[in-house]
């Protein structure tokens, strides 16, 4: 078991800067998700940790050992690839045993560890089959079993669920979580799916344009985003931002009194479910353009103070397109941002 230290790692592709001096510590046994839109550098970072890509600057340590210049084989890690990369010319057993065989483990040892990994992922019935005969979900299990069989110090996963259909993804997500909790493996997990990151990770590192913009517990990232980008990227619907001008640490939006932590041009950030629906003259005015009944809730899309706003209302609420309502955000869950920098202001609310 070991932690990962990523120290000021930079990467250039030709003239383009893919990673800009990224630092991240993953504690021993911790599960950290690298979350971000495509092209943000999260996969590049993972591949540099794996040794599949060279860094332009910085260093990577695993278990305190500098592995920056080692071959992937010598880094003591395992990886689950986006397309599983299950070897098609080997049986499931041989696939799971691959890493152990490369380590020249004794035969009985290999047999035992393969069986255990297979049992953990419930692929024992398929051990003699070839991957071509398996479904996508089963191949996924083989890929995870192969990674866990070597009992790696560090497990890297590159969008492992993105090729599964929605239902299977939900099932695998839960299973992955229980399996990894049991194995207590240090895990770095790349995903662009924020629900996956929220559900699985101990900590989420949100990446934007080659930088980590926030690395915090999922609930913190969700409710206290470090920037408008994080607020907009994490959570569905994304966080709402309404323009406010404050002076003397106070501001007023329609019939709503606010106590911002700073003066000037600010953004009032609030989650769609953190508001109270009130009559129009008791909060900020919200004009409903579309009302979508989602079953578990009613999703209202409209505008307030000239900014687009989405609100989650109880499924039974009787609201229709064209209605005017008042909104009253929960004062404890408001995130204040600067309009200029898009960054969160300290001393929230």
């Amino acid at each position: 078991m070991a932690g990962i230290q990523i120290e000021r790692v930079g990467k250039r592709f030709g003239g383009a800067l893919a990673l800009d001096s990224v630092s991240l510590d993953v504690a021993d046994g911790e599960f950290v998700a690298l979350l971000g839109p495509s092209g943000c550098g999260k996969t590049t970072l993972l591949r540099i940790v794996a040794g599949l890509e060279t860094r332009s600057s910085g260093a990577v340590r695993i278990g305190g050992r500098d592995v920056s210049d080692l071959r992937p084989a010598d880094r003591g890690l395992a990886m689950v690839f986006q397309n599983y990369a299950v070897f098609p010319h080997m049986t499931v057993f041989d696939n799971v045993a691959f890493g152990l065989r490369m380590q020249k483990k004794p035969r009985e040892d290999i047999e035992r560890k393969v069986r255990r990994a297979a049992a953990l992922l419930q692929i024992e019935p398929y051990l003699d089959r070839y991957p071509a005969k398996l479904s996508g979900g089963q191949r996924q299990r083989v890929a995870v079993a192969r990674a866990l069989a070597v009992e790696p110090a560090v497990l890297l996963m590159d969008e492992p669920l993105s090729n599964l259909d929605a239902l299977l993804r939900l099932e695998m997500r839960a299973e992955l979580k229980s399996v990894l909790r049991e194995a207590k493996t240090t895990t770095l997990y790349v995903t662009h799916d924020q629900t996956e990151a929220m559900g699985l990770a101990d900590r989420i590192a949100v990446m934007q344009q080659g930088r980590i913009v926030q690395a915090d517990a999922p609930t913190t990232v969700y409710s206290r985003p470090a920037s408008t980008f994080v607020g907009g990227f994490v959570g569905s619907p994304p966080m709402n931002f309404v323009k406010v001008t404050a002076s003397g640490r106070s501001a007023r939006l329609d019939a709503l009194d606010l106590r911002p932590p700073a003066d000037g041009d600010l953004l009032l950030g609030f989650r769609g479910e953190d508001v109270q629906l009130v009559p129009p003259d008791e909060g900020m005015t919200f004009v409903v353009k579309v009302a979508e009944p989602m079953g578990s809730h009613l999703l209202l899309t409209g505008s307030a103070a000239g900014c687009p706003v989405r609100v989650v209302a109880p499924p039974t609420a009787s609201v229709h397109a064209g209605d005017r309502l008042g909104l009253r955000p929960d004062p404890d869950r408001i995130a204040w941002m600067s309009q200029d920098s898009g960054l969160a202001l300290d001393g929230h609310a």
């Binding site: 992937p72 084989a73 397309n83 070897f87 192969r146």
Partner: peptide
């Protein structure tokens, strides 16, 4: 032949030639 297969082999302990 997907490059990932080769990369997987590297990660799981193979040299380039292996």
């Amino acid at each position: 032949i997907p490059r990932e297969l080769e990369e997987a082999a590297w990660v799981f302990g193979c040299s380039r030639l292996q």
